[in-house]
């Protein structure tokens, strides 16, 4: 089966990758699911876009995609930013799959740096684009050492790092890529999602897959798996909170982006998850920004 494109007559194998590459990635995915949080090396391919644009996530998506899938792609929560638009177009063209902006209607969601606000359900798979999969990398640059640390479950260094945060700032100052422990065994980088999203990973009903293209690693969190953010008894894990609700939809329980409105320093806070915000506005919810405009 292949997908014919309308514009240039070029024909690609379904979902771009050749079949042997897909099988290699598929085998890595099965091992990743069997050992939650462990980084499986894979022979990452060059994709028709630069590293850093989600080549790992794209290879995972291409390997699991089936023709009946409905694909949603988000970049920092938004469906309409460059990275999301180009990846969505890529799969429309090379796989001919249906796409959507609705979280609820998607069977496969590829994401850069956010988890949708709406709880995911069992029929869904969330694919993360990961820049640096190794949570210990900035503490120990040698792969041979970090691999040994994972093998021996030697994670004291990570706690020292969080402790140093407290010593210096009075609180744990890590706000994104906040380390988690998966299934009480491996410490995992949740990709640079804000720590606001960490609790959504815990016992999530959907399968979560992570692809790092440049570093050539795949890892996974199966449904209903314990994902615990590291903390201390006297400094428990906390998520971000905002003083004001979303200016557009009035939501008080979502991750907000700060938008500069003019050169006088006027700011507005809006939901980072565009589908969540739009859906709420359609349901009649209004934020302070909307009321002021009327």
């Amino acid at each position: 089966m292949s997908t014919e494109t309308q514009d240039d007559g070029l024909e690609y194998n379904f979902a771009y990758l050749d079949e042997q590459t897909k099988r290699m990635i598929r085998r890595a995915l099965l091992k990743a699911v069997a050992v939650p949080g462990y980084q499986v090396p894979f022979a990452g391919r060059e994709m028709p876009m630069p590293y850093g644009w989600g080549t790992g996530g794209i290879q995972v998506t291409a390997s699991i995609l089936e023709p009946d899938d409905v694909l949603k792609v988000i970049d920092q929560g938004a469906d309409d930013t460059t990275n999301a638009v180009s990846i969505r177009k890529f799969f429309q063209r090379v796989a001919g799959v249906a796409t959507t902006e609705k979280t609820e209607g998607a069977t496969l969601i590829q994401t850069r740096h956010r988890i949708p606000e709406m709880p995911l359900h069992e029929g869904q798979i969330l694919v993360y684009q990961v820049p640096i999969p190794e949570p210990l990398r900035f503490l120990e640059p040698r792969e041979t050492e970090t691999r040994k640390m994972h093998a021996l479950e030697e994670y004291g260094l990570m706690h020292v790092k969080l402790y140093e945060d407290i010593a210096r700032h009075g609180h744990i100052a890590t706000t994104y890529a906040y380390p988690v422990k998966v299934n009480d065994r491996y410490i995992m980088d949740p990709s640079p999602t804000p720590k606001f999203d960490n609790p959504k990973m815990n016992r999530c009903a959907a399968l979560q897959l992570f692809g790092a293209g440049r570093e050539k690693r795949i890892y996974a969190v199966p449904p209903y798996t314990d994902v615990v953010s590291l903390d201390f008894e006297d400094h428990p894990f906390e998520i971000q909170a905002w003083d004001n609700p979303c200016s557009l939809c009035g939501e008080t329980n979502s991750f907000l982006d700060e938008v500069i409105m003019d050169d006088q320093g006027t700011r507005m806070f809006v939901c980072s998850d565009t589908d969540h915000c739009t859906t709420r506005q359609q349901q009649g919810y209004q934020g302070p920004g909307q009321e002021a405009a009327e």
Partner: peptide, 17 residues
């Protein structure tokens, strides 16, 4: 191509549940 894709998804789903 299609049959391998849908078979794999079934295997992945089985391994994940």
């Amino acid at each position: 191509v299609r049959d391998a894709a849908v078979s794999f998804r079934t295997i992945l789903d089985a391994m994940a549940r």
